[in-house]
Simulated assay, not measured.
Amino acid sequence: MKAVSIQAFGDPDGLAVIDVPVPAPGRGQVLIATEAIGVGGVDVLIRKGALAAYGFQEGFVPGNEVAGIVTAVGDGVDEAWIGQRVWAFTGTGGGYVDQAVTGVEEIVPLPADLSAVDAVALGNSGVVAHFGLAHAHFAPGESVLVRGAAGSIGITTVQLAVRSGAGAVAVTTSSAERGERLRELGATHVLDRGGDGDGPAGYDVIIDVVAGPDLPSFLDRLNPNGRMVAVGVLGGPPPADFGTRLIAAFRKSLSFGTFSADTVPGPDGHAVRAAHFAAASRGELHPVVHEVLPLAKAELAHRKMDAGEVFGRIVLTP
């Protein structure tokens, strides 16, 4: 079968299509004929070598979410799964393949009218958005700023905040066109990347997908008792001394936290995914797909990610 691996850390041309044996599902596992593969920001960081300290090595096959049809099961797995359409988490990687193997506890059935492409546009991003807002103790009526809202996490956060009764939902993005698309999804205010524009004077909650050197200036935009949660580091780590902004604003009782989906128990994450898939099938949530590309063009997908061209999620298909 075909897979895409990172032959050399760095630029997208380090990605290569290779032939690998079809995996056999072991005990408690299923084999999935993939119909859609999500391309995420973490895949880009791994490809660049930015996460090498966490054990990722050259030769690694990226991708952690796929959707498709179960074609075989291992010992201990109900054969009724065979033929079912599912979303699946493949772990820290192994998703850029045309046949993926994963544990049966890592799959979620798909509604009949939800496409595999939409499923991978929503599966992981929805969990990060949902629990990121929960981590910030967001409450109805509060104002929310989504920093870096053009990616799938930001887009889903906007929609969930609106559905949950936010008083205002502001976004930062790079262009007026993207801003208009985010307004169509419920954003009430559109700001530039620096946070400037016609928005509220302050925010109760900031969900930050970017981090990077400008993170401290957004702490200044929190209302008293405001909470900022970083759910991504697409712009790199913040300055080492960014915490001094919190101390300087001591009397405002500000909070800063980080959130990773790695801390969400599997059943809890899958319950949220199932609810989101059902909402999307009813037209209540809108997965946004930037482009669908063949698996063999994973390099092109990563070039688009590096160039900041993507609104929503790029999806690969075998």
Rank of each mutant, 00 (worst) to 15 (best):
D43N: 14
A134F: 05
V310F: 07
V190Q: 05
V101Q: 06
E65L: 11
A53K: 11
T156D: 04
S255M: 06
F9N: 00
S175C: 05
A296K: 13
Q84S: 12
E299C: 09
P21Y: 03
F138Q: 04
N223T: 15
V70F: 09
T317K: 07
V70M: 12
A121N: 10
Y96H: 06
L15H: 05
G236V: 04
M1A: 15
N64A: 07
P267R: 14
D204L: 06
V162F: 04
D118T: 00
H286R: 15
A279T: 12
I107S: 02
A274H: 13
K252T: 07
N124T: 10
H286N: 08
L114N: 03
D208K: 02
A24F: 00
I153F: 04
I82L: 09
L246R: 13
L293M: 10
D262Q: 13
D268I: 05
L222S: 04
E106S: 14
R181E: 07
G132W: 13
G40F: 04
D78Q: 09
V104P: 02
V97D: 01
V210R: 06
T34R: 00
T258N: 14
L15M: 15
G91L: 13
S152K: 05
S260V: 13
F131I: 13
I6Q: 13
R147N: 14
K2T: 00
G197C: 05
D78K: 09
Q84F: 00
F311K: 04
P216W: 03
A168Y: 00
F9Y: 11
V120H: 00
D220C: 02
T244N: 10
A249H: 14
